[in-house]
Simulated assay, not measured.
Amino acid sequence: MKKPTILVVNDDGITAPGIKSLIEVMQEIGNVVVVAPDGPQSGMGHAITIGKPLRFDKVDLYPGVEMYKCSGTPVDCVKLAVNKVFKGKKPDLCVSGINHGLNNSINVIYSGTMSAAVEGAIEKIPSIGFSLDDFAQDADFSHCKKFIKTITLQVLTKGMPESTLLNVNFPKGANLKGIKICRQANAKWAEDFEERTDPYKRPYYWLTGVFENYDKGEDTDVWALDNGFVSVVPVQFDLTAHHAIPVLNSWDFNDMAVKKTSGADGQSLG
């Protein structure tokens, strides 16, 4: 069988340890092409670069891997890969990560890692985002590799439902109990901004916060990770709240009376 072509991206930058581990797994499966930011781009979400030119340079970091670094965002990397590297011929798979830090629950909205995978799915490429609960630069990704390979081979073999991608998160530590298919937990960061003062007596702020879980279900990604499982959440980029459409259709938009008011000169303001 012909080896699949796999696009590898991330948001921690092309030299991050996490992407090295992901490349190593993907090399066991197929032909790897890497397009990644030239520096950290965490928390960029689905941002794209429109106000300045992008730099896009070939680099030689790992033997046998075609690699490019990009001055833009993770989503820019996917767009450039499709348009300039593959020239419109799509790869068989897009994988993003392995991210240093979790992208469970609401974090999926802010994540550059997941947004790169979402962009792959928008391009109709089967896509997966991988993240580990460890922000350390020397994080150990070795216990993730066998699960990454298993999940990747399943996606390549079975395919993905239309307009869907996978969000995969790993707990820290080697004693993983297995894989659990989950829903996204109802949880969020309760942010705070720590105020400090610079040498010129001007205030500046550091974002801080506490992660709050409002969801007690045992079918969520937060529960799975807290209990030693690899969480796998199917994600879609259609943000329509389909359950709300019947509610809005019950509202009276067409027969609402238009209230007219007058200005000081007596003329109607509409």
Rank of each mutant, 00 (worst) to 15 (best):
N107T: 06
R196T: 15
D238V: 04
N254S: 11
G112V: 00
A116P: 09
K87C: 02
V34E: 03
A136I: 01
P37L: 01
W223G: 04
P4C: 01
K79I: 14
E123Q: 14
C182D: 05
P126Y: 11
G18L: 07
E66F: 11
I50C: 03
L22N: 10
W206K: 13
K180N: 04
Q41W: 05
E119H: 02
F86T: 00
F147V: 00
K188P: 00
D57L: 13
F237P: 04
P199S: 00
S142N: 15
F86N: 00
S42E: 12
L225K: 01
G43C: 06
R202P: 07
G228S: 14
V9L: 05
G18E: 05
G217W: 01
G266W: 07
V34R: 06
F56G: 03
V247G: 03
H243F: 13
I179E: 05
F56K: 02
N227Y: 11
T197S: 09
R196N: 15
P161D: 10
N167R: 12
V258Y: 08
D198C: 07
A190E: 11
I106P: 02
C70T: 09
Y62T: 10
T157M: 03
G88P: 09
T73K: 12
V75M: 05
K177N: 15
D11T: 03
S163M: 12
G39T: 12
H100D: 02
R55M: 08
K201S: 13
M256T: 13
D92E: 11
V9S: 14
I245L: 13
F229V: 05
G88V: 03
I29F: 07
Q27K: 15
G178S: 06
E162V: 08
S262I: 11
S127Q: 08
G120A: 03
N104W: 02
K52H: 04
N103T: 13
L80S: 01
G13I: 06
S42Q: 13
L176H: 09
D198I: 06
D92K: 08
A16F: 09
P37G: 04
C77H: 09
W189S: 00
L22T: 07
